[in-house]
Simulated assay, not measured.
Amino acid sequence: MKVFEFQCKIKFLKDVEYQNVYEKTTYLLDSVLIKDEQYLKFHESKDYKFYVTDAPWPVESDGIYKKGHVYTLRIRSVDGNLIEFFIKHLYQHQTKELLCIGGEVRMINPKRMISKLYSVTPVILKNDFGYWKAEISLPEYEERLIVNLMKKYQSFTGEKIEDDVHLYDSILFKNKMPVKIPYKNIHLLGDKIDLEIANNEMAQKLAYFALGVGLGENNSRSCGFVNYKYL
């Protein structure tokens, strides 16, 4: 299994505020996928998508992406074919706000064991009652977080994982208030988290996998994008 990262260079055709940029970059990718019959089915399916994006960087100090400026959108996936599709079809593709002008691809390859995952974009766990802290306990949240990642891993690799996997030694929430992500005329509420990854083989496999698919849900909507530190 390999994690690929396409660093897509996008030129902004209009000023876009930071809180609206997730919807704009998501639409950019979606509008490419739906032009291809195979990836249209992929886009419309309820299956795991196995890719994750972050917000364009660098972020401007005033929170407004500037018309005429070029930023980098990172698209990661464990699906090499999907990354190749984006590389080929995003070039010169544009929406009202964005134009892709190229980019480069690399493979994510930690030099040593992963010691920490930290979220760049908010980790989302969707439910019917809103933000989780008022409704479920921390152990329940942690179980959902881990089970979600395990299910994605098993779906992609076909490898069975024991239920008692020890993924991390500690979790730290970086935000005092929930972080909002616009989604279909509502806001999803998530968290910026740090995970101290455990020193065992399965934890390391899952942590590496998370770099390519994200933590939590709505990863193809720019949620749960994580970076890492290694020992």
Rank of each mutant, 00 (worst) to 15 (best):
F12S: 13
D15Q: 09
D15V: 11
Q19R: 14
N20R: 05
N20H: 05
N20M: 01
Y22H: 00
E23T: 11
E23Y: 01
T25E: 11
L28K: 03
L29E: 10
S31M: 00
S31K: 00
I34Y: 04
E37K: 15
Q38K: 15
L40F: 11
L40I: 03
H43I: 07
D47S: 09
D47A: 12
F50Y: 14
Y51C: 07
V52P: 03
D54Q: 07
P58G: 14
V59C: 03
D62A: 08
D62E: 12
I64E: 04
Y71N: 02
Y71V: 06
T72V: 15
L73R: 11
L73Q: 11
R74L: 03
I83H: 00
E84H: 04
E84M: 06
E84V: 02
I87M: 06
H89L: 14
H93R: 11
H93V: 12
Q94H: 15
E97Y: 02
L99F: 11
I101A: 06
G103D: 00
V105K: 03
R106T: 07
M107A: 06
R112A: 13
I114Y: 01
Y118S: 12
P122A: 07
P122H: 05
V123P: 00
V123W: 01
V123M: 02
L125A: 00
F129W: 13
K133C: 04
K133N: 13
K133H: 08
A134G: 03
L138Q: 14
L138E: 15
E140A: 13
Q154L: 00
T157H: 01
E159G: 05
K160T: 10
I161K: 05
D163V: 02
D164F: 06
V165A: 05
Y168H: 05
D169A: 04
S170E: 15
K176T: 14
M177H: 11
V179W: 14
I181K: 08
H187P: 00
L188C: 09
L189V: 01
L189P: 04
L195P: 10
E196L: 06
E196A: 13
E196V: 13
N199P: 02
N200E: 01
K205P: 07
A210K: 11
G212K: 09
G212H: 10
V213G: 09
L215G: 01
G216R: 01
R221D: 10
S222Y: 02
S222I: 12
C223V: 09
K229C: 04
